[in-house]
């Protein structure tokens, strides 16, 4: 759905993007994690060409945006929703007026606009605040308006620039849950950037870690968890330092694997440490295990064969 390749962007001496390749599949929630100044916002703003990259190609929904003229680019942007850290709502317009804005830009008629605005406000649970001004809303409500506005034109893609960074933890969770629901119900593809690990864990199917303008690592989260030496896995699911006689195992997708292993290979499995959480609704993480008994070697071989053995006997 989104493919960028070879993106470079420099501001004077500062290289914000230093050769970035990224692919986001249809219906995927993709999170880019990185410290402040890593180039995340620049990357996101290159996807809808708010920022023109010095080099590289941007493809969204089968169109090469970097090859479009100004008018075509404007039309293409109407199909790419964006939400912002500080909401970027029009203070002079009501909630309904803000959601109507992208429809006005597209030239949608008054009646169709009103219908769509009502639908969108229902979707984000703000139907009763249609006549309020942004200044009268809480942060969470403002971001809901931002989301309704971003989705009013039925985009195929939603870009999110630190959409929850200005919100408190409880509100953050409710906004993330909303994004996840929209992803499921509308099949919306979401590319979000954040400096918060928890955001990635809460909603993302795939993730990338960015530093100094480069993507250091990227992939579906279960795969990253099963990748030895993965920096992203270690950041998302930190375990205490390795210890002799213990192995580190990714949880994988089979929830009964360990108990079956204990039964079929005749081993004892003891958990020494673990980091397991719900990621996008399913348990994911890593366990540090001590596997002992006659079949220990065979059990390890099976785990290795399944690609779940991340770290052996350190």
């Amino acid at each position: 759905m989104i493919t960028v390749s070879g993106l470079r962007k420099a501001y004077g001496d500062v290289v914000a993007l230093d050769g970035v390749d990224l692919h986001v599949g249809k219906g995927e929630v993709f999170g880019v994690l990185g410290r402040s100044g890593a180039g995340k916002s620049t990357l996101l703003r290159c996807v809808n060409l708010l920022e023109r990259p010095d080099e590289g190609v941007v493809n969204v929904d089968g169109r090469e945006l970097t090859a479009l003229g100004a008018a075509d680019l404007r039309r293409a942007r109407q199909r790419i929703g964006m939400i912002h850290q500080h909401f970027a709502l029009l203070s002079s317009r009501t909630v309904a007026g803000n959601v109507a804005f992208p429809l006005e830009v597209m030239g949608v008629g008054r009646a169709a606009r009103a219908r769509r605005v009502a639908e969108m406000l229902d979707l984000v649970g703000l139907a009763d605040r249609a006549g309020a001004y942004p200044a009268q809303l809480s942060g969470g409500q403002k971001q809901r308006v931002g989301i309704a506005r971003a989705l009013a034109a039925e985009p195929s893609v939603l870009l999110s620039d630190e959409a929850t960074s200005a919100l408190d933890p409880a509100t953050t969770q409710s906004i993330l849950a909303l994004l996840r629901r929209l992803n499921r119900e509308l099949g919306l593809t979401i590319l979000l950037i954040t400096h918060e690990m928890d955001v990635i864990k809460a909603v993302c199917d795939s993730a990338a870690i960015m530093s100094d303008g480069r993507i250091a690592e990227a992939g579906p989260i279960p795969e990253l968890l099963a990748t030895p030496g993965s920096r992203l896995a270690a950041e998302l699911f930190p375990l205490p330092p390795a210890e002799p006689g213990a192995v580190t195992v990714a949880l994988g997708t089979d929830p009964t694997l360990l108990s079956r292993l204990a039964r079929t290979r005749d081993v004892d499995v003891a958990v020494a440490a673990g980091a397991v959480e719900q990621v996008a609704g399913v348990p994911a993480g890593r366990l540090r295990l001590r596997i002992t008994g006659a079949g220990a070697a065979a059990a390890l071989a099976e785990l290795r064969g399944r690609g779940l053995l991340v770290e052996e006997d350190a």
Binding site: N48, R74, A76, Q78, I80, A88, L90, V105, A153, L159
Partner: peptide, 15 residues
């Protein structure tokens, strides 16, 4: 007028 508001409008395809 905030730069972010103008950019949000640009991102929505406004001329």
């Amino acid at each position: 007028v905030g730069r972010d508001v103008v950019q949000a409008a640009e991102a929505m395809g406004a001329g």
